[in-house]
């Protein structure tokens, strides 16, 4: 599904160069659920943005679904993002002026679905996240957990094969976080490939595999599940 070899990303400002990723290599199989952990500033978000074709890289190669992404133009990237990739961001990232249904509708519009199909999908994913009765509410009229569920609903609406989640539960209390995790597990069970950034070791443990980044490099590949060394409090 995803194959990165020696990918580097350097941010240059007038004064400093930051190696956000250095020679990062990673393979993710189709249908896999990977948790990405690592200290703040280690390059997790940068990795997700590159994986999701939102950002380009300076060196190395990246194949998505067997396709080299380096040669894609803006239109192709946008279409791939639209059709294959779902994002859940660190913060909720809803458009404040649009109501819930319209927010979920956004990627479906760019996908070019007919009105009926869009409505069907919006209704379905709102049922899934348990917000069927809130279609006409504005984001500001929902709680934080509800907003994150809307963001997840939006990522689900396009039936993405590849879900990139950046601390989807970072701003939520533990019981709401559990609900959100349940949803993500559900998506995984339905066959999607998932890469999820988290600081929460318990959540990371639910993934099939844990990848740890440090200083822009993969430092540890670990099979997830009970009893892993992360569980025992190895530094994150």
């Amino acid at each position: 599904m995803l194959s990165m070899k020696n990918v580097s990303r350097i941010y240059r400002t007038d004064v400093v160069q930051t190696h956000a990723l250095r020679n990062l290599s990673l393979e993710v199989e189709a249908g896999e659920f990977v948790a990405l952990v690592g200290p703040s500033g280690s390059g997790k978000t940068t990795f997700l943005n590159i994986a999701g074709l939102l950002e380009t890289f300076d060196d190395g190669s990246y194949q998505l679904d067997g396709r080299d992404v380096a040669g894609l133009n803006d239109n192709d990237r946008s279409r791939l993002r639209n059709e294959k990739i779902g994002f859940i961001f660190q913060s909720f990232n809803l458009i404040p002026e649009l109501n819930i249904a319209d927010n979920i509708d956004v990627p479906l519009r760019y996908r070019g679905f007919a009105a009926r199909e869009r409505k069907r999908r919006v209704d379905r994913v709102l049922e899934v996240v348990g917000l069927g009765g809130r279609k006409k509410h504005l984001p500001s009229q929902l709680s934080g957990g509800q907003q994150q569920r809307v963001a997840i609903a939006r990522a689900l609406a396009g039936d993405p094969g590849f879900l990139l989640a950046d601390e989807p539960t970072g701003n939520l209390d533990s019981s709401t976080a559990a609900g959100v995790m349940e949803l993500i597990n559900e998506i995984h069970r339905n066959g999607a490939t998932i890469i999820m950034v988290t600081h929460d070791l318990e959540l990371a443990a639910r993934a099939e595999r844990i990848v740890r980044l440090s200083d822009g490099q993969v430092v540890l590949l670990d099979e997830g599940g009970e009893g892993s060394e992360l569980e025992n409090g190895a530094a994150v």
Binding site: N75, R79, V106
Partner: peptide, 16 residues
């Protein structure tokens, strides 16, 4: 800018 970035992430091309 945030909305534009979000729309791009959700699949809007520059042209759109």
């Amino acid at each position: 800018a945030p909305e534009i970035a979000l729309r791009r992430a959700l699949g809007a091309s520059k042209r759109a």
